[in-house]
Lab assay of single mutants.
Amino acid sequence: KELVLVLYDYQEKSPREVTVKKGDILTLLNSTNKDAWKVEVDDRQGFIPAAYLKKL
């Protein structure tokens, strides 16, 4: 599985998104959309803007 590093805090703005903190390391589920990547956070799945993430 692929991991990503969170570069900036992000507060979810819709039910399809998830809230993350800078420095979190998350499982990347889908990065086919260049604008928003799907990740898993504490058994929740949701989207975060790709600009907030860096592949490890």
Score class of each variant (00 low, 15 high):
V4C: 11
E2T: 13
Q45N: 08
P49T: 04
K21R: 12
K34S: 12
L53N: 00
K38T: 08
R16Q: 14
D35S: 10
A51I: 14
L26E: 00
L53A: 06
T27F: 11
K55F: 07
P49M: 04
G23H: 04
V4R: 01
L29D: 00
N33G: 10
Y52H: 08
K21P: 01
D9A: 06
K34Q: 11
Y52T: 05
E40L: 13
A50N: 04
V18W: 11
D9M: 02
S31Q: 09
K54H: 11
I25M: 04
F47M: 07
Y52L: 12
V4Y: 06
K21E: 04
V41C: 09
N30P: 04
K22Y: 04
K55P: 12
D42H: 13
K13E: 07
W37Q: 01
V39T: 00
L53T: 02
L26A: 06
K54R: 12
N33F: 10
Y52C: 14
K34E: 12
W37D: 00
Y8T: 08
V20L: 03
L56Q: 08
N33I: 06
A50M: 07
D43N: 14
Y8W: 13
Y52A: 09
N33C: 12
P49K: 04
L3H: 08
V41I: 13
Y8Q: 14
D9K: 02
L28I: 03
Q11E: 13
T32P: 04
L29A: 03
A51E: 13
Q11I: 14
T27L: 14
W37K: 00
K13S: 10
P15C: 10
L26I: 12
R44F: 08
D42V: 08
D43L: 09
V41R: 08
V39W: 02
L7Y: 02
A51K: 15
L5A: 04
Q11K: 13
L7E: 02
L29Y: 03
K21L: 05
G46P: 04
E12C: 14
K34A: 13
G46H: 11
N30R: 05
T27S: 08
L3E: 06
L3F: 14
F47S: 04
K21M: 08
L53C: 12
D42G: 15
L56Y: 08
L29K: 03
R44E: 05
K1S: 09
P15S: 12
D43G: 15
K54L: 13
I25C: 06
L7S: 03
R44D: 03
I48F: 03
K38M: 15
E17P: 09
K55T: 07
Q11H: 14
V39M: 03
K21C: 12
K34F: 10
S14A: 09
Y52S: 05
V6L: 01
G23I: 02
D9L: 04
K38W: 15
V6Q: 00
V20Y: 09
V20C: 07
E17T: 06
T32I: 10
A50G: 07
V41D: 04
T19D: 04
N30Y: 06
K54E: 13
R44I: 08
K34Y: 10
V41G: 06
V20S: 03
R16D: 15
G46A: 12
T19A: 06
D24E: 12
R44N: 05
A36P: 02
K55R: 11
A50C: 11
K1N: 10
E17V: 04
N30G: 07
W37C: 05
E40K: 11
K54G: 05
P15A: 11
Y52Q: 03
K34I: 11
V6F: 01
A51C: 15
K1D: 08
K55M: 09
A50H: 06
T19Y: 05
K1I: 12
K22L: 04
L7Q: 02
L28W: 02
W37P: 00
A51Q: 14
L26W: 05
V41L: 10
R44V: 08
S14N: 14
N33Q: 10
N30M: 08
E2Q: 14
D9F: 05
L56T: 05
T27K: 13
A51M: 14
W37Y: 05
R16N: 15
L53Y: 01
L5M: 10
D42R: 11
A51N: 12
Y8K: 14
S31P: 04
A50R: 11
E12M: 15
T32D: 15
K13F: 09
Y10R: 02
T27I: 15
W37T: 01
K22N: 03
V4I: 04
K34P: 15
K1V: 13
L56R: 00
S14F: 09
K13N: 10
I48M: 11
Q11T: 14
P49Y: 05
E17M: 05
S14E: 09
E40D: 04
K38S: 08
L5T: 04
L28M: 03
V4T: 02
V4K: 01
D35A: 11
E2W: 12
